[in-house]
């Protein structure tokens, strides 16, 4: 009946999750050497299109005779990069705006939090769809920026809350009365306290980012062809879900696996860093 009971399992799961994630990152880095074919190579558009998994094509081929295994491996690069960099953008924006709002208070705070509320009031998928429409189509870099720029609202709210409470703490008050410059306070007092919740939020957010990339690909505004991302592979395989399920199954499993790994890791971090749970 004690909270410590699941602890050994957690460590086990954490290690497995880290293993999965490391494996995927490794696969992404080594894709050109691991993949039996190029990700965009069309092997034989008449003879080898939509082949089921076999000894020759471990994960089958897609509608234009590209090797699914090679695309899943290369897709790992794009998907993980979109997830990681998108999260980074969201983190920087969210932390920056949250800091400013929380520290300044008053009208600035009200205005920035109003912006956050506005952002949260529109479904994110629609927001991404609308911005893609506005820009007339985006490259992968643009997509990363966009996913980040629509993903910082929650983080900003989190940071602002933390900063509001930190501001009144004795050590911060002391630093202020001693005339320490604001950047110094931020670097030495605020960021160390923010690091933990931000890291947890970022790990979780990266998984969400990857799911969102898949979602917008489904609506036709994801990573552009012929580049492979797990999201656009699932979307491409949608039309043949019943006849050639392997085309979307394997990238789908890759997404589930990595999001799951990220969730487990963020849980583990939270548990380790949250004093209440370890008590």
């Amino acid at each position: 009946m004690s909270a410590a009971a699941p602890a050994p399992r957690v460590r086990h799961a954490d290690r497995a999750a880290l293993g999965v994630l490391a494996g995927l990152v490794l696969a992404a880095l080594l894709a050109p050497w691991l993949a039996p074919h190029g990700p965009t190579d069309q092997l034989d558009i008449v003879g080898l299109a939509s082949q089921p998994p076999s000894a020759r094509f471990w994960l089958g081929t897609d509608a234009v005779s590209r090797d699914v295994l090679s695309r899943v491996l290369h897709g790992a690069r794009v998907s993980l990069a979109v997830g990681a960099f998108g999260t980074l953008v969201a983190l920087v924006l969210g932390a920056g705006i949250g800091l400013v709002a929380g520290w300044s208070g008053g009208r600035t705070d009200a205005l920035l939090m109003g912006l956050v509320d506005t952002g949260l009031a529109v479904p994110r998928v629609l927001l991404v769809l609308a911005v893609v429409a506005v820009t007339g189509g985006l490259g992968t870099g643009g997509l990363v920026l966009l996913l980040g720029a629509t993903g910082w609202f929650g983080i900003a709210r989190l940071v602002r809350g933390q900063v509001r409470s930190l501001r009144t703490r004795a050590f911060v008050e002391a630093a202020r009365t001693m005339g320490a410059p604001v950047p110094w306070i931020v670097r030495h007092h605020l960021l160390p306290h923010l690091a933990t919740p931000l890291l947890v939020a970022a790990t979780l957010g990266m998984g969400q980012m990857m799911l969102l990339e898949a979602g917008v690909s489904f609506l036709g505004v994801g990573v552009r062809p012929p580049a492979a991302s797990w999201g656009n592979m699932i979307a491409d395989g949608r039309a043949t879900l019943a006849t050639a399920p392997w085309v979307s199954l394997f990238p789908g499993l890759a997404i589930v696996g990595s999001v799951l790994a990220l969730t487990v890791i963020s849980e583990g971090m939270r548990r380790r860093l949250d004093p209440r749970e370890t008590a």
Binding site: T40, Q42, A63, V64, A133, G136, G137, R224, P225, P226
Partner: peptide, 26 residues
């Protein structure tokens, strides 16, 4: 699908083709 196929075929003759997906009004 045709765009992806064309891109690959034209690559073989030495043409560098990029695909621009846009929505219908655009």
């Amino acid at each position: 699908q045709y765009a992806v196929l064309l891109q690959e075929q034209l690559k073989r003759i030495g043409a560098d083709v990029t695909i621009e997906e846009v929505d219908l009004p655009t």
